[in-house]
Design a protein around this nucleic acid. Structure first.
Lengths: 146, 146
DNA sequence: GCTGAAACGCTAATATC
DNA sequence: GATATTAGCGTTTCAGC
């Protein structure tokens, strides 16, 4: 990717609400030129969207956990992600190398909700689970250095 | 938290660049009232900031991994997060219950960079590591249902 | 692909209730 | 806390290069 686009992406990672005017000033381009570039980045799928970064505890999602998942029947076709996509507590689903097949990142209000969620995951996807509870999060969602 | 604030937060999770005018229309409040509420949410730390959601492969970060970390000396004071905060490849650091002490989420261009990063993590923090490589990511960064 | 300009819409501050 | 108002600023589009 081109250097100017990279610069723009980095600025939007740091502040997703930065104005095109300010992006222009920061990159030495005109407002229209930045605007065009951002739209191309969005069209090409480099920029997929924008979001607020929210304190999970403040929105009643105080319990975060990682759930490693393994199908009961390893020979069956594996459609685990689609089977789980409807559970909104699952923030992310990664297919991984290693002992298990997937790692899920989930957020729930508390332990009882985690218990419920685990049951729903097992029945919806036909998997066994291994859960790692997050105690605290020193940092998260840091913008990468490009 | 109040219902209106929750609604606003949800809308900003779905579109971090939504205008105050549109937030007002969506919530039935005036532009100024929404604006005030958003600023209070930011001040209170409920909304911590805004960011673009970017395709990691498009910005030369094609390899994602989870690294579980355990101090060599479990009796020493544990300042692992501070020791690692300077490594920009680390997107998140979670303290967890279980066999290991922390789970790190990292992104690098490729396997060689992961090897380098692991060495830097071990020497910087005095820890042993266990790495789980992400093969693909069916979904990630989904906004939670509030 | 970039610039510059004009129309339009949004933001942010003030005043009022 | 909410609304109304308004000046200033940002966004978006388009013509021109």
């Amino acid at each position: 990717m081109e250097e100017l686009d990279q610069r723009i992406v980095q600025l939007l990672l740091q502040d997703g609400r930065m104005s095109y005017t300010d992006l222009g000033k920061a990159t030495g381009l005109s407002t229209s030129a930045v605007h065009q570039r951002v739209r191309r980045l969005e069209q090409r799928g480099v920029v997929r969207g924008y979001t607020a970064i929210v304190d999970p505890e403040a929105v009643n999602l105080a319990l975060t956990a990682f759930i490693s998942v393994k199908p009961f029947d390893p020979s069956a076709p594996d459609d685990t992600p689609e089977r789980l996509v409807g559970l909104p507590e699952i923030e992310a689903c990664h297919s991984v190398a290693g002992d298990e097949n997937y790692i899920l990142k989930v957020r729930v209000p508390g332990p009882g909700d985690l218990e419920d969620l685990l049951a729903r995951i097992r029945t919806a996807a036909g998997v066994s689970t291994r859960t790692t509870v997050v105690l605290s999060t020193p940092y998260e969602a840091r913008p990468p250095k490009l």
